Simulated scan of single mutants.
Amino acid sequence: MSGPLHAFLAGTGRDGAGRRLADVLAFGDARIEGVHDFIQWCFPLAEASRAVPGAPVLTPADAEAIRTDAAARAGLTAAAARMARFYEDTDGWLRPYDHNHLRITRILTALRDLSGDEAAQAFFETVMRRVRAAGSPVNADSLAFWQRALG
């Protein structure tokens, strides 16, 4: 049975704010930076978000539905590509501490769990290219969380 997370990623459902995945994918960089309630829908986890109370939690049934549905997998891939572009094109997150570091951990974990190790590793490599190019300003704890998220 499909739940709201699966439907959102498959492009047929809406998030808690009434947006479709296509709406979120069309966000400009400033909106990605400033809006904090979309990331849990694009990259769902099996644990509750501490940053956004009431955000959806990935159930085993949703996880299986996402893994086995080509449309939902494509939605997840598109969301990862949009976030990779954000991290490639912006610099605000390239500092010792930033909320985007938590987002990156979430993205890596969701990609690993729903798309597989290769997808998570590819996203990690994109992020790390930017970190290295900026002189490695990200704190060691965030880097360690990202490594652990890879499995």
Rank of each mutant, 00 (worst) to 15 (best):
I66S: 02
I66Q: 03
I66V: 12
I66A: 02
R67V: 02
T68F: 03
T68M: 03
D69F: 05
D69N: 04
A70R: 03
A70G: 01
A70L: 02
A70P: 01
A71S: 10
A71V: 03
A71M: 06
A71P: 00
A71F: 05
A72T: 02
A72N: 06
A72C: 05
R73D: 04
R73K: 05
R73E: 05
R73G: 01
R73T: 00
A74T: 01
A74S: 08
G75K: 14
G75R: 14
G75W: 14
G75C: 06
L76H: 05
L76V: 02
T77W: 04
T77S: 09
A78S: 03
A79W: 11
A79R: 12
A79E: 06
A80M: 06
A80P: 11
A80L: 10
A81E: 14
A81C: 07
R82A: 03
R82T: 07
R82K: 07
M83W: 15
M83H: 09
M83N: 05
M83Q: 11
A84C: 11
A84L: 14
A84W: 15
A84D: 10
A84I: 11
A84S: 14
R85T: 12
R85A: 15
R85Y: 09
F86C: 02
Y87S: 06
D89H: 12
D89I: 00
T90Y: 08
D91L: 05
D91H: 09
D91G: 13
G92E: 10
W93K: 12
W93Y: 08
W93E: 12
L94Y: 11
L94N: 08
L94E: 10
L94P: 05
R95F: 09
R95W: 09
P96L: 13
P96T: 15
Y97A: 14
